[in-house]
């Protein structure tokens, strides 16, 4: 197929995303421990290391790790409160879970030879659909049928409202798609670009200054993107939550 075509460099930027079993070579059943399992487990350990071990001192004057944990807590809490409103605060643990998981999965994916769990549509899609379904359920439980007024924009002229309602409904159902593909696309594109540059560097051998400089630059950008995408995922979750809690424009 495409990657086996004209390129003499023999670059396989998609290899890093292959899901393979940790032990043996068999087929992948739903319970098989794979490299996905390994890196998800490492993400769990990283979250525990930061938020549990980092804060075990419970110090009034925090250590460095504890300050980072408190910073993350304050950052997400502030975001939920600002965007979703006061009554969104009770969903703060869920959004914190998503944010911490995505941010660590993104950062762990930047380690050389690692596997980026958030570059897979299965992972981001599951999270996005979970957010979409729970937000919709929250909206209907809180407001009943009047939740549908989210799509009926009373500020617009009456003639325009059915058209706007159609657009709103479509954009509402596109939400999980864009929500998941944004994260997956950013992660996959960045890692594939780095892999391609690494292939150039390998092809040029000694003296491959330009590709290595480019890798460094892309790597720095990816660090930024890793954080921003986690932030964007969390803040969009808050925006959707706000729509569910306050559907009336």
């Amino acid at each position: 197929m495409a990657t086996e075509g004209g390129s003499g460099f023999n670059i396989h930027p998609m290899d890093q995303f292959v899901v393979k079993p940790l032990f043996g070579d068999g087929p992948i059943a739903w319970y098989t421990p794979t490299n996905v399992t390994l890196w998800l487990a490492i993400a769990i350990l990283a979250v525990i290391a930061l938020l549990v071990l980092g804060t075990r001192g419970r110090a009034i004057v925090p250590s460095r790790t504890q300050s980072i944990a408190e910073l993350a807590y304050g950052f997400v809490y502030q975001m939920v409160e600002d965007v979703a409103g006061k009554d969104g605060v009770k969903y703060f643990p869920y959004i914190m879970t998503l944010f911490m998981f995505i941010v660590f999965a993104n950062f762990l994916g930047l380690l050389p030879m690692s596997f980026t769990t958030t570059s897979h549509l299965a992972v981001t899609g599951t999270m996005a659909i979970a957010v979409f379904v729970s937000v919709t359920v929250i909206g209907f439980v809180k407001h009943g049928v009047s939740f549908l007024s989210l799509f009926w924009i009373t500020a617009a002229p009456l003639a325009l409202r059915p058209i706007l309602a159609l657009i709103e409904v479509i954009s509402y159902f596109v939400r999980p798609v864009s929500h998941s593909i944004r994260l997956m696309g950013n992660m996959m594109a960045g890692h594939a670009v780095m892999k391609v540059f690494a292939g150039f560097a390998g092809a040029l051998g000694i003296g491959a200054v330009a590709p290595i400089v480019a890798i460094s630059a892309v790597y720095a950008l990816e660090i930024l993107v890793s954080f921003i995408q986690a932030y964007v995922f969390a803040i969009l979750t808050c925006v959707y939550l706000k729509d569910a809690l306050h559907p009336h424009h």
Binding site: V19, W30, Y31, T34, V36, T37, I44, F101, V123, M127
Partner: peptide, 14 residues
């Protein structure tokens, strides 16, 4: 074919 595996472990992780 890897989706059930990923989704299962993701749910466990979350």
């Amino acid at each position: 074919s890897t989706y059930p595996n990923q989704i299962f472990w993701l749910v466990v992780t979350l």
